[in-house]
């Protein structure tokens, strides 16, 4: 033996899991939804997706290299995930300039200003998205019509999303049963045949993606189930109280960004709680705020805001929602006896 022995503290073996493995896993899980967006929005979706990913990766590289003077770590895939999710949250006819601004905000402010991967309080893609939504409300809410706008980009024919149809209809005094005729059937909603952001429309592809994530054990069931469950429960309560002014749970689940948000945005490692109990509370918070914004707020859609708001609560949740300790049960009964 000619080399020196290595000495290190235990454990001496590793699972082989790595940050890139998790990030690329998320990208793989997003591929079905990407294909669906290409199918419905064609060339527009392609341009938006490529620009967003390229811009995010580039900004990360530039900031790490020249501002943080660190070795760039773009190969870990986290910037690409942010870019992909950002693209999924934008309409497919968004001008390239705006996409680049969004990417700069997402990576620069949402992620790097906190210290890079692992330190950001808020989901970077959503920071970028919400920045754009507030700054450029017109461009961010003109939704290309699916299929018909396949070969159009900036000049795409636009239409309303089911959520905005319902919101505006209700506020102009129409009843829900009248409006339901204007929106696609539930099957069409699930398949993605509706207006909306590039990646959020096709529920079936998002479900496929999340099943893959669960199978790879990249995420656990707690956040998606609690978000969807609470959206469904709160929507159902409202719907039962007044079926003519409040849409049913299925409508709320299948429209807008609930599925994308619950599966891919809320489950973002960095900005979600660590313990299972915390994850459930966080998910319920997102679901509740989403429904509140959708029903009572001025925006037709509230998933992004809901997730960002709950992101801000994560440190607090982590502080107080501790995992169940081993032997805890016995301990508490003992304390009571004393």
């Amino acid at each position: 033996m000619n080399q020196k022995l290595v000495v290190s503290p235990s454990p001496h073996v590793h699972s082989g899991d790595s940050v890139p493995k998790n990030m690329y896993g998320v990208i793989i899980a997003l591929i079905p939804a990407l294909l669906a967006s290409l199918w419905y929005f064609g060339i527009g979706a392609l341009i938006v997706t490529l620009t967003a990913i390229a811009a995010c990766v580039l900004f990360e590289w530039v900031i790490q290299k020249y501002l943080m003077k660190a070795t760039p770590s773009i190969s870990d895939g986290s910037a690409a995930v942010t870019g992909l999710l950002l693209a999924f949250n934008m309409p497919s006819n968004l001008p390239i300039g705006l996409i680049i601004i969004g990417a700069a905000v997402a990576i620069g402010i949402g992620k790097m200003s906190f210290g890079g991967l692992g330190n950001n309080t808020f989901n970077p893609a959503l920071v970028g998205r919400v920045f754009l939504l507030i700054s450029f409300p017109v461009q961010m809410t003109s939704w290309p019509v699916p299929v018909a706008s396949r070969f159009q980009y900036l000049d795409a024919t636009t239409g309303a999303t089911p959520l905005s149809v319902v919101k505006e209809g209700l506020s102009s005094g129409a009843s829900l049963s009248e409006l339901m005729g204007e929106i696609p059937s539930y099957l069409n909603l699930f398949m993605g045949n509706m207006g909306g952001s590039a990646g959020e429309i096709a529920g079936i592809t998002l479900v496929l993606g999340v099943l893959y994530l669960l199978w790879r054990k990249i995420i656990t069931w707690h956040i998606p189930v609690s978000v969807l469950g609470s959206v469904a429960v709160f929507a159902a309560i409202l719907n039962i109280s007044d079926p003519e002014s409040y849409a049913g749970p299925l409508f709320h689940l299948l429209t807008g960004g609930v599925l994308l948000g619950a599966f891919f945005m809320a489950t973002d490692y960095v900005s979600s709680p660590m313990s299972k109990k915390g994850m459930l509370l966080y998910g319920v918070g997102i679901g509740l705020i989403t429904v509140l914004i959708r029903v009572y707020g001025s925006y037709p859609e509230g998933v992004s805001f809901a997730i960002l708001i709950m992101n801000a609560f994560v440190p607090l949740i982590d502080r107080y929602m501790k995992p169940k300790r081993f032997g805890e049960k016995v301990k508490t009964t003992k304390v009571q006896k004393q």
């Binding site: 020196k4 290595v6 000495v7 290190s8 503290p9």
Partner: peptide, 13 residues
């Protein structure tokens, strides 16, 4: 050096 340390970069560890 007779062996190679490879734990956390901390003298205390």
């Amino acid at each position: 050096r007779l062996n190679e340390y490879e734990g956390a970069t901390s003298c205390a560890v």
